[in-house]
Amino acid sequence: MPRKSFRQALNEAMRLEMRRDPRVFVMGEDVAGGKGASGEQDAWGGAFGVTKGLLAEFGPERVRDTPITESAFVGAAAGAAMTGLRPVVEIMFVDFMGVCFDQIFNQAAKFRYMFGGKAVTPMVLRATFGAGTRSASQHSQALYPLFTHIPGLKVVVPSSPYDAKGLLIQAIRDDDPVIFLEHKAMYDDMGEVPDGAYVVPFGEAGVLRDGGDVTIVAYGRMVGRAMEAAARLARDGIEATVVDPRTTSPLDIDTIVETLEETGRLVIVDEAYPRCGMASDIAGIVAEEAFGLLKAPIQKVTPPHAPVPYAPELEAAYIPSVEKIEAAVRKAVGWTR
């Protein structure tokens, strides 16, 4: 199978879906780049180069650069979606969704319910997220819990190039509004990705590793760290199951609970803030639905309740590390009543 980067995988997903369905189009700030300028068109292909090359194949009507007005173009995406198109919108950083939050959570997310099931709003909002690039507090957050909180939205956080492509194709074909979050430190990650179109369904967790001692649940970039911690722990005879739910909404709680039947211990690694985040959400659901399976208190590995810092030393202390995951697992495994 060919090896491709996370970036390439996402680009292919959009390209294939735009070929397949004329209703699909891409818009956002500098998704082509160079609009109105005298030099190169498609100069950027998105701030992270993910849409590069789409302009040449599909033209400026379907690869639309926008002014920096997120409220207008995200709202326009909702209006276009509810009238028959299938927009894929790029927001450079998830942090910027603050300026268009109304369009997402009061408009797009609620049309179907408010209008008694009559509206269909098939739109995808792609955005980068995550810390690790010295981008500080307004360009580094992992805000997927905010969107997970809102009924009507689906939220995707892929952890590999293969999943990224299949989940994005599913997102574009999905009839509900989807928030699709790409970790900006993972765009050059390589992995096996088929050339053709395929979907990875929402609400189905991936089990990346099987082990009988502990279940580690992680999203996005934290999945790789969980795998590394699991490999280290295995050297000491501690066997971990690693679960990547892939989507925070819908959430595949069944797979997590099934693994707990064997492991009885749960560690949740989350790059989002510790309060009302995925770690606390999953811990709450497990405590409610699978209390009897637990042999030890649930361990959460998250950043502190603080904004993302700039200095490399501070940022390293902020993001959940392999060492912290390892320590949390040892605490769970070694816990005695």
Partner: peptide, 17 residues
């Protein structure tokens, strides 16, 4: 102020189709 962005989107649908 909810309507103007949505109407822009509906108008975009009209334009693209």
């Amino acid at each position: 102020g909810g309507a103007p962005p949505l109407a822009c989107g509906a108008a975009l649908t009209a334009k693209l189709t």
